[in-house]
């Protein structure tokens, strides 16, 4: 192992760890551009509904609010998880992470149900340009959440098996950055897709 720096949290403690966190921030920069592009396509196509429904006819707020609360709470919980990790409480950290992932699964379940409702109502990804980008934007975010569930579970398994060390702490911390990022994207989706759509 390379030199361990005791004056910083465990997840930053080696040179390699520090590099990985920095690299992940750069990656998040690229992710911002990815979603920014999807949002600009959304704004370009939002009024181009063809013969399909417009957002106002489509959106139902109760499930969207459930999704929002699930995801925002999960982001808060993973923050607590990182805090627990920093004070060395492995078990508490794992509980917070598990709750985070469970809420992520709730979010995903509601989102899948929402998609099925749209399709049931005859609004598919092929109906109009607006629906194409709506489902692509939501779907890209949803795929990120799905990937997060797989990734987060594999990190939890490693923490359970190997305990908290410079490597697992680093992974868990980076995962928390990813999860917060998905939350931020959702806030934009909630505000600019749903709220703007129903207003």
């Amino acid at each position: 192992m390379s030199k361990v720096n005791k004056s910083v949290p465990l997840e930053y403690s080696t040179e390699e760890n520090d590099l990985k966190i920095f690299g992940f921030w750069v990656f998040l920069g690229a992710e911002i551009i990815l979603f920014a592009t999807l949002f600009s396509v959304y704004f370009s196509l939002v009024d181009r509904t063809g013969s399909g429904p417009i957002g106002k006819e489509l959106f139902e707020m109760p499930p969207v609010l459930v999704e929002t609360f699930a995801l925002l709470t999960s982001s808060f919980l993973i923050g607590l998880g990182v805090h627990a990790m920093r004070i060395g409480r492995t078990k508490a950290m794992m509980v917070f992470y598990i709750l985070t992932l469970l809420l992520g699964a709730v979010f995903l379940g509601v989102e899948v149900n929402e998609f099925l409702t749209y399709i049931h109502d005859g609004a598919t990804i092929q109906t109009s340009a607006f629906l194409s980008i709506l489902m692509t934007l939501l779907g890209t975010h949803g795929l990120h959440v799905t990937f997060g569930l797989l990734w987060g579970s594999s990190i939890l398994m490693q923490v359970k098996k190997r305990g908290l060390n410079a490597k697992t702490a680093n992974k868990a911390f980076i995962f928390s950055l990813y999860w917060h990022f998905l939350d931020v994207v959702w806030i934009f989706i909630f505000s600019f897709v749903y709220l703007k759509g129903v207003l």
Binding site: V26, G29, A30, E31, I33, L34, T37, L38, V41, L45, R48, T49, G50, S51, G52, I125, Q126, T127, S128, A129, F130, L131, S132, I133, T136
Partner: peptide, 30 residues
């Protein structure tokens, strides 16, 4: 890092249009 994600999205939309019948760059349905 700031240009390639745009290509990623553009190509994904192209794939969706060509293989899944979406309407991003279509001549009809908006």
């Amino acid at each position: 890092t700031f240009a390639f994600p745009v290509l990623t999205v553009a190509l994904a939309l192209m794939t969706l249009d060509r293989q899944f019948g979406t309407k991003f760059f279509a001549m009809q349905d908006g």
